[in-house]
């Protein structure tokens, strides 16, 4: 398995997912942009690939990965979910918004099956209200962005959760 040796390797990797043109689906991208401004040089920041299988290559072997995405679980819009991902995968009730190319849920499932997971993976989900094709976030989701950003900043300051446990058996 090829490993990235870009500068910054060893830093935590923050991945924002979403479609910028489907209202609240851009929440993950917005938080990513704010984190980039707040933590220059403290982490690597990536806008998520449209092809979900590419996530496996991005995060395999990384120490610490945080993914931020819009979710739709029926909670109040703007609710922030924090999920420490383990081998049981992501909860099916979360309905991570996905492209036709597949979803984060599938990337995590395949990642565990193939031994291509980071040491730790935490997913921050921001409850969406409106995912129609249009610009602009809905007000309650917009209002949740500073808090979501702050929580990820704190997350990255902390020691991180214990091992997600996806070390590569097929290196």
């Amino acid at each position: 398995m090829e490993r990235s040796t870009e500068p910054g390797e060893g830093l935590p990797l923050v991945i924002g997912l979403g479609n910028a043109h489907r209202r609240d689906d851009r929440a993950g991208l917005e938080v990513l942009r704010r984190l980039k401004d707040l933590l220059p040089g403290k982490a690597r920041f990536l806008e998520g690939p449209e092809d979900f299988t590419a996530l496996l290559d991005l995060w395999a072997g990384a120490k610490r990965v945080v993914v931020v995405d819009a979710v739709s679980s029926g909670a109040d819009p703007g609710t922030i979910h924090r999920i420490v991902v383990g081998p049981e995968g992501l909860p099916g009730t979360l309905h991570l918004t996905s492209t036709h190319g597949g979803s984060l849920t599938e990337a995590v499932g395949l990642g565990y099956a193939l031994g291509r997971m980071p040491d730790s993976l935490v997913v921050y989900g921001i409850e969406a209200e409106d995912l129609r094709v249009a610009d602009g976030l809905s007000p309650r989701v917009e209002a949740a962005l500073p808090r979501a950003t702050e929580r990820i900043v704190e997350e990255l300051r902390g020691p991180g959760p214990s091992r997600t446990g996806g070390g590569p058996p097929h290196a």
């Binding site: 092809d51 299988t53 496996l56 290559d57 599938e106 499932g109 395949l110 099956a113 193939l114 097929h170």
Partner: peptide
């Protein structure tokens, strides 16, 4: 039922598929 369950029993096959896809990419 899906590729994830397939990958658990046949990881080498699914890894081969992903490697090919990556070559296309």
């Amino acid at each position: 039922p899906d590729a994830i369950r397939l990958a658990k029993d046949h990881p080498e096959a699914v890894a081969r598929g992903l490697a090919l896809k990556k070559a296309g990419n």
